[in-house]
Design a protein around this nucleic acid. Structure first.
Lengths: 336, 336
DNA sequence: CTGAAAGCGCTTACAG
DNA sequence: CTGAAAGCGCTTACAG
């Protein structure tokens, strides 16, 4: 029943070494021999056992992907980007997201410590010292996606949150001449959020609006957070002309609040977001926001990781690539 | 540097057999011996190599998950359901979705043929003969999620599309007394879609509306499909009182069309959907729809699959569980 | 309760 | 170009 390399070798009248060479595409085998082995293999329905191969080569052809719990909207895009690229190069993807039963740390230890994967892609909103220690101790390469905290001495792929925020706020100022621009920020300890806030401040400063044109309230990247943040801004004696929500989910909450208060977007107040989540195109008017290249982040991470696995030298180098975002114009900012 | 079972055995003054037994929690080891081994292991930072373990046991503790390309909204929920349950039982998840570079068939062959996984969960909208053949030939167990086509002799977990559709249409008839109920159907070759259509017809029939109260146009589960389907229904001389969109994505398209035509929902026409996708709660008014227990589908599939892996007898039995859906009432049907 | 040894199915340096 | 043999790091039936 079970057909292994021995059976193929026997039938083909060669040694298992030769069969092995045929399947690893060694050029040490003559074409006729190769043909014969391949023919027999087909007949017997032989597929080399990847586990045995892994044990022998000390390589698994598998990468581990560790994701945080809350990536919701992005989840599929990331996995797709990773999966597609990995497949192109004939690698497998072991996925693990943190959830109620498990945290990132555990998963990382499991992946890095065992021989189950040859490298890992880690998406962690925040790298703490314990995580850094695991990374340092491990001999397996790791690539960070959108990581915050101390990410030195690692390979990093990030999104240009600062520039994205700067650009969209600049759009509000330059194209629409809004004078007072409010912002509902993201979580204080989230690095994406911090960079977005910085981009906002920078744009205001550039156009001299930082003194009287700024109005900031805290938020948390959730729909409810956006709902309350919007209400808070709107209840100010001086009303903002426009509001920059630090992410689209909060913008959704803002739409709800506006609806409730019968405030029209963009007639009464302009609104913009960040992320370009799927949902944002269905808001009315369509949300003006910043597009984030999620799938690309995934595929770039894979390419780099495989490079690190193949070339040990690369592993030592720290590396950062910041992917640029692009503005998505909808009607919510006041554009036609 | 590399610490293996030998090193631990040596340091602990026992044989590798004993170390192995300690880590597989055999009760054949005395507590003091166990303690000593565990202590040394901690010191040396020893983790048993899962690949070697797999080769020896002929088990990988890994399940493969094969998903179609287009599950968008559900993707994360399914993976989460599967991942969480698998983790509870200490299993790993190898994910693979079909995409531009790969189809379901290839992935399935790869998973089933090689020794990379002990079983697979397959979500295929349609099982064709080639897929069935692969399943039949493989000695590894497989569980089907929401599969269509000939799924006999397999383990299946499905959603009760028929009942869900029946219930929501019945709601339109019973609670709102609508007399003419249109429907935009899903793809002709999609089994979910077919069952939903059947539920719709059954409800109309039950209440004697099948003669004059039915109005059906084709659709394709896409936003655009819903947009055009809605327009087509609305352009009829006799207008429907309510429309059942075969899925929420199409309902989104219907909202867009309604907005454009200045048709109010539900005042001018009631609208309901199916799936309860994340987005549907943000439509105005909130979409009345049918909730589908996606994560549960995933976790149930895992539980059953692991059962099949552990108990070979189970593997032979065909099995179907149909998870029931529930009605989610929003404002779009005319409810307060 | 513990150990020596065979075996899981491959890869690859070495010898020819 | 090909083969015999050691080795990858475990598990487990067998013997004690």
């Amino acid at each position: 029943m079970k057909v292994d390399i021995k059976k193929v070798a026997e039938k083909a009248g060669v040694s298992i070494a030769t069969v092995s060479r045929v399947f690893s595409n060694s050029d040490l085998v003559r074409q006729p021999t190769k043909d014969k082995v391949l023919k027999i293999s087909k007949e017997l329905n032989y597929i080399p056992n990847p586990i045995a191969r892994s044990l022998s080569r000390q390589l698994t052809d598998t990468i581990g992907v560790v994701l945080p719990d809350l990536v919701g909207e992005f989840f599929m895009d990331i996995i797709h980007g990773i999966d597609e690229e990995a497949y192109k190069q004939n690698w497998f993807v072991l996925v693990s997201s943190s959830h109620s039963k498990r945290n990132i740390l555990e998963t990382l230890i499991e992946f890095m410590g065992s021989g189950r994967v040859d490298g890992v892609i880690l998406m962690a909103p925040q790298i703490d010292e314990r995580i850094n220690e695991i990374i340092r101790k491990s001999k397996r390469p790791i690539v960070l996606i959108n990581a915050g905290g101390d990410t030195n001495n690692n390979a990093n792929f990030k999104v240009d949150n600062f520039q994205g925020a700067y650009t969209i706020v600049e759009h509000l100022i330059q194209n629409h001449s809004y004078k007072i621009i409010g912002m509902v920020e993201g979580p204080k300890d989230n690095y994406d959020a911090i960079d977005r806030s910085n981009g906002y401040y920078k744009a205001l400063q550039k156009y001299g609006l930082n003194k009287n044109g700024s109005m900031v309230v805290p938020g948390d990247f959730s729909v409810e957070g956006g709902y309350h943040g919007f209400k808070k801004l709107i209840s100010n004696k001086v009303k903002p002309d426009a509001i920059f929500m630090a992410n689209d989910m909060m913008a959704v909450g803002a739409y709800q609040a506006a609806k409730e208060l019968k405030i029209r977007i963009p007639e009464d107040i302009a609104l913009v977001g960040f992320d370009d989540i799927y949902l944002s195109q269905f808001l009315h008017p369509r949300l003006t926001t910043v597009h984030v290249p999620i799938a690309e982040l995934g595929s770039k991470a894979v390419i780099h990781l495989l490079g690190m696995i193949k070339d040990k030298k690369l592993k030592k180098k720290s590396f950062v690539e910041i992917l640029s975002t692009c503005l998505v114009i909808g009607g919510s900012c006041g554009c036609a």
